[in-house]
């Protein structure tokens, strides 16, 4: 019989400043490893095809679709998930801005939106509305909260300019 389930293993991942020991098939998606093996369920499954952005995480600071990223391809790179943004009980400015603008309805898209926006503001601290829309285009909010998400990103950008 074909060895259906034999694959090299991944034994270590660097997530949110911590090192996690694990046993995962290198072919597993980063998303299911985060969710199912490490209990980091803040990253969501929305399509599994790179089309919705619900699973977005940062890999070395770049927004990546964890649903189509094989865990074996991550190596020693550092991963940031939504669980890693809050520091010592203080929300990340984007988390705070999403809350303040109430830029969510069901909230299922929220972690992917926030992480994509974190990457945006890291590369462009002062984006125009068009730049925001363009950068966020791959993230779907089926509840249609887009205008408030744009507003939240603008608020966060303005807030970090002040501080």
């Amino acid at each position: 019989m074909r060895p259906l389930f034999y694959m090299p293993k991944v034994t270590e991942l660097h997530i949110n400043g911590r090192t996690y020991a694990l046993q995962a098939d290198a072919d597993e998606s980063l998303l299911s490893v985060l969710r199912d093996r490490l209990g980091l369920t803040g990253s969501k499954y929305g399509c599994g095809e790179g089309q919705c952005g619900a699973c977005t995480v940062l890999i070395d600071g770049n927004p990546r679709r964890s649903c189509i990223t094989k865990v074996g391809a991550v190596g020693a790179k550092s991963i940031t998930t939504i669980e890693g943004l809050e520091k010592n009980g203080r929300l990340h400015p984007l988390q705070q801005a999403f809350l303040d603008a109430e830029a969510l309805q069901c909230g299922y898209c929220t972690s992917g939106m926030i992480l994509t926006a974190v990457a945006l503001l890291d590369s462009q601290p002062n984006p125009s509305e068009d730049q925001i829309r363009h950068f966020m285009q791959g993230n779907i909010c089926r509840c249609g909260t887009y205008p408030r998400i744009v507003e939240a990103i603008q608020r966060a950008a303005a807030a970090s300019k002040k501080s």
Binding site: G42, E83, L85, L91, Q95, F98, L104, G107, S111, I114
Partner: peptide
Amino acid sequence: GRDFVTGRH
């Protein structure tokens, strides 16, 4: 609301 923006929900 906070549980949604932190991924805790």
